[in-house]
Design a protein around this nucleic acid. Structure first.
Length: 271
DNA sequence: GCTAAATGTTGAT
DNA sequence: TCAACCTTTAGCT
């Protein structure tokens, strides 16, 4: 269940487990049998995350491209690998560990040019060194679309998903429906900086937690699942700060959550 | 135990 | 606009 932080975490894990090794690839499910054969016995050079995409670069210059989508997941373990259970799209076996993939939206073999084509369609990824927020600002500052939609648009910013958009807008007190171009450069700068910091924290922790301890129902110990967010999936519950019931509405194809008090409606001519 | 929804995107209609 | 992808989890019985 991945936003960008999950993808970057997986890239690090898989690099540590498999990079530099000649690998065995199979598709127990069968749907990726031809692709697995193209990569089998080749050496994995590196795993590159970009937004929600993973690119596994092999020594003959082909790449395994994976996008988990909503249901996709990777699992890993030490050798020997167990008999495959369920629909394993691809299993990759290295010298001392294996990883296996279920349920991805995309699992394909790409040329370097095809990878470049996909990357060219993506906005800057806050988790990538050298990401250029100016590219995102150029899009956002010219758009009449709601900021909550632009944050989900992977060609504006790569890696943001439904949790980060809801929580980020709440934390910055921004009306999700205000047009992107109504934000000041300072407001956008603060959003980008905060998003990058929070996604980096997400990579370290392995999940998204935005709440401060004093805003949680249980204030001691690590945040529980239900205590991790201010508004995401909290429709009808009281805002942790002001008690106003959290609202929800479908925006950009996904359920948006917001507090109408902490995120008051924006009007032209106001901040 | 069952059902619905979910941190997302693609491809068919 | 909608089904598919396929698994996990929450919420209900």
């Amino acid at each position: 269940m991945p936003e960008g932080h999950t993808i970057h975490r997986l890239a690090r894990e898989h690099t540590a487990l498999l990079a530099g090794q000649r690998l065995t690839l199979t598709s127990p499910q069968g749907r990726f049998a031809a692709g697995a054969e193209q990569l089998d016995t080749h050496r994995l050079d590196r795993v590159e995350p970009y937004g929600k995409h993973l690119f596994y670069r092999f020594d003959h210059d082909l790449r395994l491209h994976v996008h988990l989508g909503l249901y996709g997941s990777w699992q890993s373990g030490p050798l020997p690998p167990p008999p495959p259970r369920g629909a394993v799209r691809v299993r990759i076996v290295g010298e001392s560990a294996y990883v296996e993939l279920r349920g991805p939206t995309v699992c394909e073999v790409l040329s370097p040019a095809e990878q470049a084509f996909i990357e060219a369609r993506l906005g800057p990824d806050p988790l990538r060194a050298g990401a250029k927020p100016d590219r995102a600002w150029a899009r956002l500052s010219r758009s009449r679309a709601p900021i909550a939609g632009l944050l989900m648009d992977q060609s504006v910013i790569a890696g943001t998903g439904n949790v980060y958009r809801a929580e980020l807008l709440y934390l910055h007190g921004l009306d999700p429906f205000r047009p992107g171009r109504s934000l000041s450069a300072e407001q956008f700068g603060a959003l980008w900086t905060d998003l990058r910091r929070r996604m980096q924290a997400g990579v370290r922790l392995g999940r998204i937690v935005t709440t401060r301890a004093e805003d949680r129902d249980r204030r001691r110990g690590p945040a529980s699942r239900e205590d991790s967010f201010y508004v995401y999936r909290r429709a009808g519950l009281a805002c942790r700060r002001c008690g106003t019931p959290v609202l929800t509405e479908v925006l950009a194809g996904r359920n948006l959550y917001w507090c109408p008090t902490e995120q008051p409606p924006w009007a032209p001519g106001t901040a």
